[in-house]
Structure formats: structure tokens, C-alpha cells
Design a protein around this nucleic acid. Structure first.
Lengths: 227, 227
DNA sequence: TTACTTTCGGGACTGGGTACCATAGCTTGT
DNA sequence: ACAAGCTATGGTACCCAGTCCCGAAAGTAA
């Protein structure tokens, strides 16, 4: 009968109390007490009260960064799609925990704001990466990068929220489809002269991480074949 | 030599102190003291310390709501463009104040988060309106509404930030162009059968608020003529 | 055992935010 | 002019999140 580590006990106590009394009616002292620990220990494990609910947001940001960073110019779009899928998978694997978090953020304004702020950081990452890829901060490209980054995270959030509401049984397929739709909105630079053309052509040269690239590669190729 | 009202004196004192010592190094007591008022009076005029910097965010939300609400199905896109222009104009008219706020939000993480949360509320408004316009929460439409709303506010923010950084001398023209670009990304539903087609056709039937509609109407018509 | 390191708890403090109450000032009606 | 009443204000006490510091425990190595 060994106790689980403090972090876990604190998180369990926190979610239990949030469910019972609500977020704002629960103080950090309450959480620490139920976990059988001191208030100081709580703040040693979580930077803030909100952090119990959004613990590994930083890790997730690094996950995206790591997936985007090594990609070459020709694999940029695949990297974006993969990074998005990575984030979605992270939440899906959390399973019930993610749904409880969603229930909380739906009710408590402060938590919703914090969630949105986090999304803003993801979007910033994508925006910078896409702007780089499109080539510097020259004006038309800069706007297009902003639009594309916004669309990318919007697509992700859309599918994620559907899954959180149990409206989707296969979120990974859905997010791939959504990303295809997003990429179809933005004509590839320099591929077709008319900006109105809707066909996107992506060329692959070299692929590190072939295993993880494969699924989206296949989808993109299928997409190209269909149209 | 009559004193200006408390609200103003508090805001002046706050911005002055933020400039001198920075946001986090300034307490609400400091602000009240410099304004020659009590701490209680501060919180009567502003809900929170952050609220001194973002005072009329609620008013701005209602401004958007009011502009979107009365628009009919055929004028929906114009309403969106107009609402965006309205928000941009609001900031532009604030002039220097908006730039000081931008300087603060660029440095202080808590303020940046709050700003992003506000943007999230705008986006939600647009998303709901656009989803309504596209017709209910049926799946493909719902995603497209989400994408479009994200693109709309991204375009606005892009132009606004350019103006805040003094990189734009005519933000209104710029935002109109950016909105044209955004709308061009999304083929009008039911107008051209191929989703790849890049031409957008918008039909007008009735226009209340003709005066305010005119400029964007003209731009849209010109845009249609060009392509 | 001793010595070192890690984890924990408690207590004191800062600062944002709320609630309540008392008072000064201004307006009204008479 | 006087009283009644409203509004803006100040002050005090309070709650709670978050930080800092120090001392105690508990595990680890020698």
C-alpha cells in the first residue's frame, strides 16, 4: 500500500474537489489538505492553481517545436500537418482527463481564457514557422502566413472540440481531412501562376522520420490524385 | 482649474506609473495614491488592474454584435467586413493610447494573455455569426465557419499590429485589402460548383445602413470586375 | 554512525479583489 | 433654509493566490 507520488495525489485531489464544489469554490489549501500534503508542496509541484489542470502545456509546445524545426523547405506542409496530428493525439491519449478539463474550461471563464492564451502560443509557433517557410516578412507573404497559421490551429481546435464533446469517433482521420481542406485553401506558392487555382502540389525530396511522415504523405498523394 | 473625473485621473496615473516602473512593479495602491484617490475608488471604476489598460473591450464586443445582428443572409459578408473595419477604426482613433497599450502587452506576459483572450471572444462572435449564415452546425459548414472566422480576425490583427508598429500609414485600406484576400480564400457556397474555383460572387438585395455599406460594397464590386 | 541531499511543512509577507459601513457632497422638495 | 435622499468616495477588514525563508524529516552514501 504505497502512496502515489505527490504530483499525482495533488492532481487527483484537485479534480475531485473541482467536480464536487466547482473550481472557484476550491482553494489551494483545500486541495493540499485532501491530498494530505502541505500548501507549499502544492506550489512546488504546480506553478499555479490553474496549472493543475493544464500541466504539460510547455511540453506540448516543445513537441511542436521539435517536429517543425528539422523540416526542410519541401516538407514544411507535411511537418505542419504532423505537428497538428501530434497535438491532437496527445489530447486523445489523455482520454477522460482531457474531457474533464474541457468540462471545467467550459464553465469557468478564467480557465477558458487561459486555454485560449495557450492556443495563442501554438498559433504563434505555427505563424513564425510558416512565415519563415514562405520567405521572410515581406508583406503579402506575412499576411498569408498569419491566415494559414490561424486556419491550421482553428482546424485542430475544431476537430479536438468535436472529439471532446464525443461527436467524433475517429478524430485523427477527421483532423487529416480538415488539414487537407485547410491546405487546399492556400494555393502553393509558385506552383500555379493563377492565385485562384485550387490545386496544391507538394514535392518531396528527402524525408527523415519517414515512418511518421508516411500517413500524411499518402493522404496528400491521394488528394493530388483525386483532383 | 477643475479636476477631470476620477476614471481619467486613474487611467493617467496608471499609464504614467506603468511607463516609469513597469506594470508588475506598480500596485493598485500606487495608482490610487498618485491619482489622489482611494483604493476603493479604483476598483469601482475598473474591475481589475488589467482593466485600466483594456477599458472598453465590452463596448467593442457589442459594437460588433450590433453590426452583425441586423444583417440579412445576402449582406452577411459585407457585415463581417464592416465589423472588422469598425474594430480597427476604434483602435486607430485611440491613437497614441493604443500604441502605449501595445508596448505594454508586448512586454508583460499576463497582459498579452489577456489580449489574446479578448481576441478569442471576437473570434467566437464571428464564428457563431458565420456558422449561422452558412446554415447550422452541419459538419462541413461548421469547419468552414471556424476557418473563416479565424482568418477574419487574423487578418484584422495582422493589419492592426502593423499599424501599431507604425508600419502602416493607411490601415483602413490595408484591412479592406486583407479582407478581400480572406474572402477570396473561401469560395461562395453554391456559386461555383468546383470548390477549387477562386472566384467569389456576392449578391446584394437590400441594404440598410447604406452609407456605411457603400465603401466596402464598392470595393467588392471592383474586385468582382477585376477578376 | 555521520554527512549530504531531497522533499516536505509552516509561518510570514505581498498584492489583487470583495464586502461592508460610514461620511462628505450634491441635488431635490418643501 | 432645512431635511431627505442619492452618489461618489474612503477606510477597514477580510479572502485567497503566490513567494520567500527556514527548519524538520526522510532517504542515501560513506
Amino acid at each position: 500500500m504505497s502512496k502515489p507520488p505527490a504530483r499525482i495525489r495533488l492532481a487527483d485531489a484537485a479534480f475531485a474537489l473541482f467536480d464536487e464544489r466547482g473550481y472557484e469554490q476550491t482553494t489551494v489549501d483545500d486541495i493540499a489538505e485532501r491530498a494530505g500534503l502541505g500548501r507549499t508542496t502544492f506550489f512546488r509541484n504546480y506553478r499555479s492553481k490553474e496549472d493543475v489542470i493544464f500541466p504539460d502545456h510547455d511540453r506540448l509546445l516543445e513537441l511542436i517545436r521539435d517536429r517543425l524545426a528539422p523540416s526542410s523547405h519541401s516538407t514544411a506542409l507535411v511537418a505542419v500537418s504532423d505537428a497538428v496530428r501530434l497535438v491532437l493525439l496527445h489530447y486523445v491519449e489523455e482520454g477522460d482527463l482531457a474531457r474533464r478539463r474541457y468540462a471545467l474550461t467550459s464553465k469557468v471563464a478564467a480557465l477558458r481564457d487561459r486555454e485560449i492564451a495557450s492556443v495563442g502560443r501554438y498559433q504563434r509557433l505555427f505563424r513564425e514557422f510558416i512565415a519563415d517557410w514562405m520567405g521572410g516578412p515581406t508583406e503579402p507573404a506575412s499576411l498569408r502566413a498569419e491566415l494559414m497559421a490561424a486556419a491550421v490551429v482553428a482546424a485542430h481546435n475544431h476537430v479536438l472540440r468535436r472529439w471532446l464533446r464525443s461527436e467524433s469517433s475517429d478524430p485523427v482521420t477527421e483532423v487529416d481531412e480538415a488539414m487537407r481542406e485547410v491546405l487546399a485553401l492556400f494555393p502553393a506558392p509558385g506552383s500555379s501562376p493563377q492565385p485562384g487555382g485550387g490545386t496544391t502540389v507538394v514535392a518531396f525530396r528527402t524525408g527523415q522520420d519517414i515512418d511518421t511522415l508516411l500517413p500524411s504523405l499518402r493522404r496528400l498523394v491521394e488528394d493530388g490524385a483525386e483532383r
